[in-house]
Structure formats: C-alpha cells, structure tokens
Amino acid sequence: MSEDRTPVLTGGCQCGAVRYALYAPPEDVHICHCRMCQKAVGGPFAPLAPVRKGDFQWTRGSPGAFRSSTIAERHFCRDCGTPLTFHYVNSDWIDVTIGSLDAPEEAPPANQYGIEGRLSWFAGLHALPGEETSLPAAQKRRIASFQHPDHDTPPDWRPPQTATEMP
C-alpha cells in the first residue's frame, strides 16, 4: 500500500504490538454467531467489519495466524492474544474485529450471520440491569493500565511497565 494514503479507520491489539489501517469504509458490517467465531473471540459472537484486502494494511508488527478451517484464517496478536481479523483464504476481503478498531462506534453492525449458533439468551441482553464502570478516584489512581491508547502512536511506543511510568 502507498504510504501517502489516509486511513479511514485504524485499529490494533490491546498491547499495541500489532496495528492496522483501513483505507476504505467497511462494508456489510455484521456479527457472526457461528460456534467457530464464538470460540475465536471468546464471546457469544464475533463483531466483524469487512474491507477489501487492497484497502487493508498492517502498519505495526506482525500478527500470528490460525487456520481455523480449510477455508478460513484468523489473525491475532502473539503478545496479548487480541483477535484481529477473519478472512476466507481465497477471498479478496478481510474482516477486522470491531472491538480492535480505535473507533468501534464507527462500524455499527447491519446484519447477523450464523444465527443457528446464536445463544438463546442473546435477545434478552437489553433487558438485563446495567451500570457504568465507575471506581472511586482513590482506587482509579492505584490502577495502572498497560493497554495501547485508541489512536496510532510513534513506532517506538511501548506500554508503561509500572504505575510510576504512567503519564
């Protein structure tokens, strides 16, 4: 890919070792309920945002790959385990996991696939009680996050290893 292209969306893994860019908006953004996708992301479904392979580029690091079937492969971060992509081996498309995007709100699902594997309780999630993640200020100060920020960083960026290294 040409380095003078401007990404439409960027993303990467939790630790920042692997980053990617999308040079076109995703199409047919969807969630897949099939059992293979459930296991691949460790969740009840895989939220996926497809783009043509020509509009996708790894921009930092080299992901691990797992051939999950005779027709499909998935990429992940070897360091932190974040699931990053799914693609059919003989396809011109690659799907990034919506949660690995820096701006996941920009890729709302418009369809569902693999509904034969949809968990029976999925439809009732909206009715469950919920609360925001909140911690007292004193407790927040004691927590050091080693997660990569939701934006591109310089090539030499490394996560802090201790709370004293936090900005």
Rank of each mutant, 00 (worst) to 15 (best):
A46W: 01
P108V: 07
A137M: 12
V89P: 01
R60C: 08
A65V: 09
F76K: 03
V96Q: 01
L119F: 06
H87K: 10
P136A: 10
R141P: 02
I115F: 09
D79N: 11
I98D: 00
Q38R: 01
M36D: 07
S145V: 00
Q112C: 11
P83V: 00
R67K: 15
Y88F: 13
F86Y: 12
A49V: 09
D95F: 02
R67P: 11
G99A: 14
E116W: 13
D55F: 06
A144H: 13
T82R: 01
I115G: 02
W121Y: 10
A127H: 12
A72K: 03
K53I: 04
W157P: 03
P63V: 05
P104T: 09
H87V: 02
L84C: 12
S120Y: 13
G81T: 05
P44W: 05
H75E: 04
F66K: 10
H126D: 15
P108I: 10
P50E: 00
P136E: 06
L119S: 00
A40E: 06
G99M: 07
F146P: 04
G43H: 04
S68D: 05
P149V: 11
F146L: 09
T59W: 04
M36G: 08
C77S: 02
R118Q: 11
I94G: 05
E131T: 11
E116Y: 13
S120V: 15
G114V: 02
R78F: 03
V41N: 00
G64C: 03
A144V: 14
T85A: 08
A49W: 05
T59G: 09
T133K: 11
R141I: 05
T70R: 14
H87S: 02
P149I: 12
G124A: 00
A163G: 07
A103Q: 15
A107Y: 05
E106D: 14
V51I: 13
E132G: 11
D156S: 15
G124Q: 09
T59F: 03
S91A: 08
R35T: 13
A40V: 04
A40M: 01
C37M: 02
G117F: 05
F66T: 10
N90R: 13
N111H: 12
A163N: 00
Q57A: 15
R35P: 01
G54N: 09
S134Y: 09
P155T: 00
K53F: 03
D102M: 07
G114C: 07
P104L: 11
A127D: 14
H151K: 11
H151R: 12
Q112L: 09
G99T: 08
A127N: 10
E105A: 13
T85E: 03
G61F: 00
A163S: 08
Y88H: 13
S145K: 06
H126N: 14
